[in-house]
């Protein structure tokens, strides 16, 4: 069995999620390699060796500097062919998902996503997929090789294990359409304000607030509870609240004692960032909102009346 793990990097570091998938792959046995694609990435292979990679393929080229998916499809497709790779695994990210799907189409290969685990079964691989808003666990398989798998963010933690980490450089041939998109700017978000990751209580706001000014409702409640404020991607993208407060797949993962979600639908990508909160309270006017499937207490109602009142009641308790 030969497995290749895509090793995503940022700011001179291999990403934790990729290393976690790599160590998982190493624990399954067989030939396990990692692939690093970028410019000036020579020094990163060491980290991969520490997580079980026997071989680290490195494509280092100024043309590969921008973290865009399509040139990476070229690179990985080439490795799969040259090295007879049977399985290609990715840790979920904005970049990885687009590479995995592009690769599936290029190679006519099966892609299973939202994987939370993987195991060998005889000579075959079986993935655990959490589907339909986590209401069912599906054992998924691949009918052909190469197999492609995309693991859910935070599916496992990296574990250290020694691998030979033999570095092998390669230069992918890039297709014309792969070079058509160009990165104009990469703005790195500033971290401002207190970190929500350490907060004991989090009050989070989503698009149900209706307008950016209404974040004041969430802030007041957070203040009364001595907690921090978080937000969904929908409102962060819309500029209602800073990026540093975003919870979810692309944002922060938090596990406070109490998480109060106001006007948040509970999409899976938000859920993966807050589901390990000890107690979840949700206020949403739509009785069918997915958040009610996993909130300890769900209140179907209008946040504009409930939240101010709740703040008042909490304050009153504090005083008395």
């Amino acid at each position: 069995m030969s497995t290749l793990v895509f090793l995503e990097h940022h700011g001179g570091e291999l990403q934790k999620g990729s290393l976690a998938v790599l160590s998982k792959a190493a624990s399954l046995g067989g030939d396990v390699a990692g692939v690093i694609v970028g410019s000036g990435v020579d020094g990163l292979a060491d980290q991969a060796a520490k997580h079980g990679a026997a071989t680290v393929y490195v494509a280092d080229d100024p043309k590969l500097e921008a973290p865009l998916p399509q040139p990476r499809v070229d690179a990985i497709a080439q490795l799969v062919a040259d090295k007879s790779i049977e399985t290609v695994l990715f840790a979920q990210s904005i970049l990885a998902a687009d590479i995995a799907a592009g690769l599936a189409a290029r190679l006519d290969a099966g892609l299973n996503w939202q994987l939370t685990d993987i195991a060998t079964d005889g000579g075959d691989l079986v993935g655990k997929q959490s589907a339909l808003g986590d209401s069912v666990v599906v054992d998924v398989g691949w009918k052909t090789t190469p197999r492609i798998g995309l693991f859910r963010a935070g599916a496992f933690d990296p574990s250290e294990q020694a691998g030979a980490g033999t570095v092998e450089a390669f230069l992918p041939e890039l297709q014309e359409h792969s070079l058509a998109a160009e990165m104009v700017e990469q703005a790195h978000a500033e971290e401002s304000g207190p970190s929500i990751e350490d907060a004991n209580v989090i009050v989070a706001g989503g698009r149900g607030l209706g307008e950016p000014e209404k974040f004041a409702l969430v802030e007041e409640l957070a203040k009364a509870l001595g907690g921090a404020v978080a937000a969904t991607r929908a409102v962060v993208d819309a500029g209602w609240y800073p990026y540093s407060a975003q919870v979810g797949q692309t944002g922060k993962s938090v596990s406070p004692t109490l998480y109060i979600a106001c006007g948040i639908s509970g999409a899976i990508q938000h859920k993966v960032g807050m589901q390990s909160s000890k107690t979840i309270v949700a206020i949403n006017k739509d009785p069918n909102a997915p958040i009610f499937e996993f909130a300890d207490l769900g209140v179907v109602g209008d946040l504009h009346t409930i939240v101010p009142k709740l703040t008042e009641l909490v304050r009153a308790r504090r005083v008395s």
């Binding site: 666990v137 054992d139 398989g141 009610f292 207490l297 209140v299």
Partner: peptide, 23 residues
Amino acid sequence: GSHTQVLALSDPPPRGDTRKIED
């Protein structure tokens, strides 16, 4: 024409009680 397949279905681990009330 598909290269993936569903092998088995099972229930997810239960999450504690969820309570839903109408305001």
